[in-house]
Design a protein around this nucleic acid. Structure first.
Length: 117
DNA sequence: GCCTTGACCGCAA
DNA sequence: CTTGCGGCCAAGG
């Protein structure tokens, strides 16, 4: 497997329950900025021990995929972890987005109720 | 080894 | 709000 895959999987494994990350953010944190698309392929070839359901698109929605079944399962698992979806299948990304603990960078976004870009 | 697709992203019209 | 365009990389034909 490529290093990109391993890096992505390792990062996804670190995502706590009830939190999510975007493809672009994962690619960036894994050391491959701009390779969001490759992250999608990494998810497709992901081993079962990778919580791929915590990976969502960058606009706070579950990415539409060919497999309706796993998409449904992803939403179900996220709801089980406390993520609330609206009627349009979207959710407030900035309330659930997980920022990897880097150095001493204080991470907010814990139910602050405001945007944090 | 080239060409097409795809669980993507950001910006512009 | 919806479309369109370019970029980027990996897999399959």
């Amino acid at each position: 497997m490529t290093d990109l895959y391993e890096a992505v999987w390792a990062l996804v494994r670190r995502i706590p329950a009830g939190r999510v990350m975007t493809y672009g953010q994962i690619a960036d944190e894994a050391g491959y900025p701009g390779r969001a698309r490759a992250v999608g392929f990494a998810m497709r070839h992901a081993p079962p021990d990778v919580p791929w359901h915590r990976v969502v698109s960058g606009r706070g929605i579950v990415s539409p995929r060919p497999d309706q079944e796993s998409m449904r399962e992803q939403r179900a698992r996220l709801e089980q972890e406390g993520v609330r979806f609206d009627s349009e299948g979207r959710f407030p990304l900035w309330d659930y987005l997980w920022i990897p603990p880097d150095d001493g960078r204080a991470q907010r976004t814990c139910g602050a109720g405001g945007r944090v870009p």
